[in-house]
Amino acid sequence: MSLAKLTVSALAVAAVSATAAAAQSRDTVQVAGSSTVLPYANIVAEAFQENFDFTVVVESGGSSTGLRRFCEGVGENTTDIANASRPIRESEIATCAENGVTDIIEVRIGYDGIVFASDINGNSFEFVPSDWYLALAANLPVDGAMVANPNTMWNEVNPDLPAQEIAAYIPGTRHGTREVFDENVILQGCEDSGAMAAMMEMGMDEDAAEEACMEIRADGVSTDIDGDYTETLARIAANPEGIGVFGLAFYQNNTDSLQVATMSGVTPSTETIASGEYPVSRPLFFYIKAAHIGVIPGLKEYAEFFVSDAMAGPDGPLAAYGLVSDPELAAVQATVANEVTMGN
């Protein structure tokens, strides 16, 4: 049985050496989270490593996944930074606190526009939020009762739109983008179209009405895309009638195959989003675990570099890629420099 002994001892040696090696301190900054923030984080990580002698590893996975891993606890086996395309939720802060992650620094890096784009050779669209609500809601209030959404053509929703079948590709629920879409487009459209008022007349309270507003139909007219924008693009290439929801940066990289729709008469661009004219935009964030500053080499330097004028400023590479620069960047820089945690 010496072989069995050999195997067992080899395994034991492997296990011991593995844990011994893991005990050595980590010298890479670990970042995970939103796939919307990912390209920006990649650009920053690249420029940061070109200029400084630190290592940064950026993972994707979505805002919720990133924040969940971020809140797993403090220590070298947990991530240092969570990228998020939406603000952290109260429930996530509570989970974080339970696991000992009490000091979180919130860093807003800028704004991202959410655009509606279709095949370059197809019809062009000029939307208002209520078009999207009437096209995608699961149930619509008609004469005091909720009925299943009967609309299948865009011109049934709004006579000004072309007679084209409704085929929408919207981000899946694991994306932070979906939350913004639900609130800034669907809920807004629900209020604008008077459907919300009609629901409340029917006796729903405000929360129930909002929930009914944001319920998306599941009869195949609208498709949730759980992958990335490249998947949405592929769907539109396969179905030229389709309309997809994209980030502004993605659209700007693919203007040769996509045309963008206006929303409430405004064409999305970094300028119209910065000025607040374009209605569907949201801030992008990353969250730093303050307890790791000073422990993980390069963490604070990376965060400061990220929000520096040279990177996140209006003429920096992030803006060139499609990020709308934060008008209050100086305040954000101060937050990072002084390590101001949330709630302080």
């Binding site: 890479t28 990649n42 490593q49 290592t55 590893v57 993972e59 996975g61």
Partner: peptide, 30 residues
């Protein structure tokens, strides 16, 4: 966590085995 954006080459083995790296099929994916 192998689907990551890694710019630094891992060091020589054995230390390098513990450094972050990517892999060919996940590079295709990303």
């Amino acid at each position: 966590g192998m689907v990551a954006f890694v710019r630094e080459y891992p060091a020589a083995p054995l230390d390098g085995l513990f450094d972050p790296a990517s892999a060919l099929p996940v590079q295709v994916y990303s």
